[in-house]
């Protein structure tokens, strides 16, 4: 619990990744229903972030936000669930390649969410789709994408942010 209560302590990459996994699992699970819970999480995280000293927060704001959020997500989950489970990206990969295997709930959630995101991606304007696919799937740099699409890197970024935002907003706004 030491690290969770004191996010200023250096976080090993794996621990950091675990925090994000817990959080990810929570948010993705909420996509199936109870979307309100995600808002409650943010509210609670916000209150805890406000309690931090400014000097602490500016050091590693992103790590603080994820750490606190994961901790809150963990507490939320303890309230509602009996058996804690951890998210494992390798298991997700494996499950995606072997869909016939029975899936634990959190993997099913993740794969459903991936499918939902992909469906939403296809409703975006063509340029937004193209930018997102080139950046995320093909791993091209902004400069490479810009050259390929004959647009500025500034525009590449703009499309990328808008695409991600649009998917995020649709995912959480959609009536479940």
């Amino acid at each position: 619990m030491g690290t969770k209560n004191n996010p200023a302590a250096p976080l090993a990459a794996t621990v950091y990744e675990q925090f994000r996994a817990e959080l990810h699992r929570f948010l993705v699970h909420r996509l199936r229903g109870q979307k309100q819970d995600a808002g409650d999480l943010a509210q609670e995280v916000y209150l805890r972030v406000l309690r931090l000293k400014d000097s602490e927060l500016v050091q590693r704001p992103q790590a603080y936000v994820y750490t606190i959020a994961s901790h809150v997500a963990y507490q939320f989950r303890l309230r509602t669930e009996q058996n804690p489970v951890t998210f494992d990206s390798q298991a997700v990969e494996h499950a995606a390649e072997n869909p016939e295997r029975a899936l634990p709930d959190e993997l099913a959630d993740h794969l459903n969410a991936e499918r939902m995101v992909e469906k939403m991606l296809k409703t975006l304007p063509p340029m937004h789709q193209a930018v997102l696919v080139l950046c995320k799937r093909d791993g091209l740099s902004y400069e490479e994408v810009a050259r390929k699409l004959c647009i500025s890197t500034h525009t590449v970024k703009k499309y990328l942010y808008e695409a991600k935002a649009r998917i995020t907003a649709s995912a959480w706004n959609e009536k479940s």
Partner: peptide, 27 residues
């Protein structure tokens, strides 16, 4: 930015989740 509004926290967490979901997009 993050301390300016709980809605910023909300969006940031959700976009992070979506970003992660996009990692394996269209494999």
């Amino acid at each position: 930015w993050i301390v300016a509004s709980p809605l910023h926290v909300d969006s940031f967490l959700k976009v992070t989740a979506v970003d992660r979901l996009l990692t394996n997009i269209d494999r």
